[in-house]
């Protein structure tokens, strides 16, 4: 009897192992993601790409996402940033809206010690496994990053910001060869940072792994950011389907999305940023309508039901006598 039972354990183990290998070989994982999902519903109203405070956004379903503190230089932990994310689409374009609290609007980079607030969304180029943590891990799965910068927004809203905007008397009387680009080498070489004529405040980037962040030649992401009353709202907009090795979106599809925010006032730039883990992003065929408060009562009912059920278990769940 004992021997046969030992064989049972071994049998179950071997059987499970064989099934597991089978599943793995056929590229399946016996689990489904239970993370928070950001749903991009279809908007019938027009979504203006230059106004993150447009009323159309009251129809989108928001999710709150915790961000880590920046993890590069001390203090590396501590801090509790949160962003609120919303998404919409209009069959042609996908819109992602990020909102977060920031006491100061840091939108100039004219001084030696000024750094710009910034925000970014990141998608896997090819949506893969359903469990987000694994997406970034695959060396063969690059990510597409859209980074918005407050300083670039200022360039667009107010024209290129130069030293004189911070220090009006900084300029000297004569600048020889002032119009020759070669004396502005970054500009002459086409570095996007040095451009004086900007069309978008959002940088379209690709990354294969750490340290491989590359600016693409296709600056195809539009949008706008605005700071109001201690809040940034930044809107990212892009055609759902585009040419090139970038993330593609389609109605009915799911992919993943992660968020990052930089606080210029804390000298954050580069990898010094707050990041979220991957969430699920679902591009839904449903129409975004906004909704009434009735559902709150449904939730209250569910919670009350759950509590009642627990009470029932607590009161009647007496253990049977051992024996």
């Amino acid at each position: 009897m004992r021997t046969s039972r030992r064989w049972t354990v071994l049998g179950i183990t071997l059987l499970a192992l064989m099934v597991a290998v089978g599943l793995t070989v056929s590229d399946m994982r016996l689990a489904s993601s239970q993370t928070v999902t950001l749903v991009a519903k279809r908007s019938e109203a027009q979504v203006p790409a230059d106004d993150p405070f447009d009323t159309v956004w009251s129809r989108a379903n928001p999710v709150e996402v915790p961000l880590s503190a920046q993890t590069v230089v001390p203090p590396k932990a501590g801090g509790d940033r949160t962003i609120t994310a919303r998404a919409l689409h209009d069959d042609e374009r996908l819109y992602v809206l990020m909102e977060w609290e920031d006491d100061s609007e840091d939108s100039l980079v004219s001084s030696q010690t000024e750094f710009s607030d910034a925000a970014a969304v990141q998608f896997p180029v090819t949506p893969g496994e359903t469990i987000p943590a694994f997406c970034m891990g695959d060396p063969n799965a690059p990510v597409n990053i859209w980074q918005w910068k407050a300083a670039w927004q200022t360039d667009i809203d107010e024209g290129f910001v130069d030293v004189e905007d911070t220090y009006p008397n900084a300029s000297v009387d004569l600048y020889p060869f002032e119009d020759e680009d070669v004396f502005y080498p970054a500009r002459a070489l086409g570095n996007v940072f040095a451009q004086t004529e900007r069309e978008t405040p959002i940088d379209n980037l690709l990354a294969g792994s750490f340290g491989t962040l590359t600016q693409t030649s296709d600056q195809i992401v539009n949008g706008a950011g605005e700071w109001r009353d201690g809040h940034w709202r930044v809107l990212f907009a892009r055609e759902m389907s585009v040419d090139g090795d970038y993330s593609q979106f389609a109605e009915g599809d799911s992919t993943n999305v992660a968020f990052a925010a930089w606080d210029g006032a804390s000298d954050e730039r580069d990898g010094m940023k707050s990041v979220s883990q991957f969430l699920t992003l679902e591009v839904s065929p449903d129409v975004a309508e906004g909704s009434g408060g009735v559902t709150v009562w449904i939730i209250v009912a569910v919670v009350l039901g759950a509590v009642a059920l627990t009470l029932v278990l607590a009161l009647y769940g007496r253990q049977r006598q051992r024996g």
Partner: peptide, 11 residues
């Protein structure tokens, strides 16, 4: 190295 605000990079 010094940061040049006009081109937003360091020289």
């Amino acid at each position: 190295p010094m940061y040049r605000p006009t081109t937003r990079v360091s020289e």
